[in-house]
């Protein structure tokens, strides 16, 4: 379904005092992994380990220095048409800033699928928008509300509905539930699990929170300083061998 092959990403060092020829800082180095349809991969790492950068690369937002992301065998960056197909969707941590404050929920969701032009009739668009809202546990009464009129959990549900509405088969969750309270986190995770089984979606769950990853991921990749230090199945989590992975695991237990 998706395979990331030998990607490396570096940024210009901004705080350097040199005017010209700024040196580059490697954020991700020669990283590879692959994921089958319907699988859920957790990418776990501390702040600054390159998690969000990896998320951006997978979504097609950041071209890596080398390597590529292959979706159903087709390279994402080599072929510009692939980027337009919207094969990957994303749910960000900051639900407030990731929604246009001047757009009602109806437009936020409908924009994702009406771009194809297939849904021309107003009624079709409305019915489908309601169906996506219902899928994330919200009723039609939220259609005309604006982002500031919703709670954190409700808005994050709208963001998930929007991600689903793109018809993407792969969804990246970049710290998507970190800023929610524990109760809402569990609700959202249950919802995501339900949707994944129903639609056979592929999830990539980027987070620093081990608990949420173990809740519904099949595999976990431990990311440390831009490289995967260990890849392990959730069922065999106690067998971790890498010191960093062990440390991260014991800090939670």
């Amino acid at each position: 379904m998706i395979s990331v092959k030998n990607i490396s990403v570096s940024y210009k060092k901004e705080n350097e005092k040199r005017l010209f020829k700024k040196s580059r800082e490697i954020v991700i180095e020669d990283l590879s992994f692959s994921l089958d349809k319907g699988e859920c991969l957790g990418i776990l790492g501390e702040s600054g380990s390159g998690k969000s950068t990896l998320g951006k690369v997978i979504c097609g937002l950041l071209k890596p220095d080398c390597g590529d992301v292959f979706i159903n065998g087709a390279p994402l960056y080599e072929n510009k048409k692939n980027k337009k197909k919207c094969l990957v969707s994303v749910v960000f941590q900051d639900y407030t800033s990731s929604t246009n404050p001047r757009m009602p929920v109806r437009e936020i969701i409908a924009e994702s699928f009406s771009k194809t032009g297939k849904e021309n009739k107003k009624d079709d668009i409305l019915n489908r928008t309601i169906s996506y809202l219902t899928a994330v546990g919200l009723s039609a009464e939220y259609l005309n509300r604006f982002p500031h009129e919703l709670s954190g959990g409700q808005l994050q549900r709208v963001c998930i509905a929007r991600a689903l509405a793109t018809h993407a088969e792969i969804i990246v969750f970049d710290e998507a539930i970190s800023s929610l309270d524990a109760h809402t986190q569990v609700q959202i995770m249950d919802l995501l699990k339900e949707i994944q089984i129903e639609k056979n979606l592929t999830y990539i769950f980027i987070t620093h929170d081990l608990t949420s990853v173990t809740y519904f991921c099949d595999r976990i990749n431990f990311l440390y300083k831009g490289t995967f230090v260990e890849e392990i199945k959730v069922s065999k989590l106690s067998d971790v061998s890498n010191n960093y992975a062990k440390k991260l695991l014991y800090s939670v237990l």
Partner: peptide
């Protein structure tokens, strides 16, 4: 950024 990801 998100609108770009959606391929709009």
């Amino acid at each position: 950024v998100y609108a770009k990801v959606r391929g709009l």
